[in-house]
Design a protein around this nucleic acid. Structure first.
Lengths: 219, 219
DNA sequence: GTGCGTATACTCGTCGGCGAGTAACGCGAG
DNA sequence: CTCGCGTTACTCGCCGACGAGTATACGCAC
């Protein structure tokens, strides 16, 4: 289960997958990744790039090929992927596709502190986010429509995944918004009262102090 | 849009939300969070805890109350939330609930490097993950069933969100698996051939070299 | 009552992440 | 032909994340 990667940063996965095609220097890897459209999956931090490539080399997953300097430009070090690097890439892909450890999206964190806001405001905020999700959906659909004809479907799979997840999120948010807005959410009155008066119900106090186990084991 | 948080780590959100109830020392915050069941959202790294609390204090979101030592135990520093801290908590919650910047789940990264594996293996791996997702669903359902009676629904919202997302993921994975397993995915033959012979199609080579813009602007 | 395992409550050091800075080149405008 | 601004290609350095280490206290067996 998810053995510790020598280079854990997901950008390293991107690097490995581009440099698998042909030897490159770091900057080239980044532009290739970008040109590919993968900046979305593993966002490129220019600062990290060289750290990551350096670490990959240190661990024998990449190796330095040449260190040419054209003119008096800064030196460009070209790297090639090693057999070990290729193995790591494959093994990592296997892990990512087969393991489902729970993720912690930021929105989920927001949901878990819902109660610090009042119900009415929550509805407003969720509506804003719903609109934003709608825009993301449009964007993903646009991307599919644009590239669908030219690019094999295999390479657009992540976008299809995005779409599926975004639509699910949209549906879920809609039903939650409706429940709150129409007053059907159980406990809504206590929530509103707590928020207006700042008063903490006995229930909440109890919850706050209890330290029993809940949903999910500590790692 | 997502102004830079003085303390960006999501654990800080957890800390703020617990210490909002009453002053505590760091270790107590962590156990409260755990007892609450929030270790799932913002997983607790013991090393980070003190860094995070320290940073919150440094930025005036928490303040030191007393530094009692009971017996000859290590000194316990108790912190209280400041008005600024409370404001940050509320503002942060607002942001998390209203903004939808795209997340980058690990699975999505795996999908984006699908092609380094062969279709048959991909099916096997996805089936494994499908089973794992099923177990996660069961777990979330169990948690809902267990706590539903005792805990107000408001505090279980994240679990409902988990469930919705997990089910969507399950459905999407099923349909992808079927498409590949039943040979309905377009481009499947090229994919298989590429994987068996190691040969790169002209299409892929072209894709690899092109550096045109795609889906998503660089930040 | 003494030994030992476990919970409590931190401290420290390292390593990676990443923003900001730098420097050479190339080109288009005037 | 030269100014300057965008692109290429990196380097530097801080600071935050977190694993591992540490030290006390408490409970319980024998």
């Amino acid at each position: 289960m998810a053995k510790r990667r020598r280079v854990a940063n997901l950008m390293a996965l991107g690097v490995l997958s581009t440099v698998a095609f042909r030897p490159m220097h770091p900057y080239e890897m980044a532009t290739a990744l970008r040109g590919w459209g993968k900046e979305r999956d593993l966002q490129i931090k220019w600062g990290s790039l060289y750290t990551v490539v350096g670490n990959l080399a240190k661990h024998g997953l990449l190796e330095e090929v040449e260190s040419s300097r054209a003119g008096r430009r800064p030196e460009r070090t070209v790297y090639r992927i090693t057999d070990e690097g290729r193995a790591e890439l494959v093994d990592w892909a296997r892990e990512l596709l087969s393991v489902a450890e729970p993720e912690l999206p930021r929105f989920r964190a927001g949901l878990s502190v819902l109660a610090v806001l009042g119900p009415d405001e929550v509805v407003t905020l969720l509506r804003q986010r719903l609109a934003a999700v709608g825009r993301e959906i449009a964007r993903a659909e646009g991307a599919l429509a644009e590239h669908g004809p030219r690019v094999p479907r295999l390479f657009l799979i992540e976008i299809e995944y995005d779409l599926a997840m975004l639509r699910a999120e949209q549906a879920w948010m809609r039903s939650l918004i409706d429940e709150i807005a129409e007053g059907r959410l159980p406990g809504l009155d206590e929530w509103r009262k707590h928020h207006e008066t700042g008063e903490i119900t006995a229930e909440m106090r109890e919850l706050a102090d209890r330290s029993s186990e809940q949903y999910g084991k500590p790692e």
